[in-house]
Write a protein that binds this DNA or RNA. Structure first.
Length: 112
DNA sequence: GTCCTGACGGTCT
DNA sequence: CAGACCGCCAGGA
């Protein structure tokens, strides 16, 4: 938390790591929390490297539409879906059900 | 050193 | 309402 030397990737990892089970977050929300409001792409890019880490639940991070855009980057295209369902998140057609209710905002939960 | 791509998002047409 | 384009920053070729 007090790692000022934390790189952009590390910042993303920390936020994603704070995402509680059964909840999902959007790239834009993380980007906004980090100050990159329009840098959602960077968040997704960071997630690409995060997928190599076991401490970063990248499967809990979806796009603004609640859609599993990055599922294809997992070991298997269904890995992300399986992990989310295992946590209680219902996925239909690669889309999170009740996404609004399961949305986890770092600024709101962690407190800006 | 330059060009392109990338797990997104918002706005315009 | 839906589709397309541009903008954000960083890393790789």
């Amino acid at each position: 938390m007090s790692n000022e030397k934390a790189n952009y990737f590390d910042l993303v990892y920390q936020v994603v790591r704070e995402i509680p089970p059964g909840r999902v977050c959007s790239y834009g929300a993380i980007a906004n929390y980090l100050g990159l409001k329009s840098g959602a792409r960077m968040v997704g890019y960071a997630m690409n490297a995060a997928h190599t880490l076991s401490d970063v639940p990248a499967h809990r991070v979806v796009n603004r539409q609640g859609r599993l855009t990055g599922k294809h980057h997992f070991e298997t295209p269904t890995r992300m879906l399986e992990l989310l369902e295992a946590e209680g998140v219902q996925i239909v057609n690669d889309q999170v059900q009740d996404f609004e209710n399961r949305f986890w905002d770092p600024e709101k939960e962690l407190g800006f």
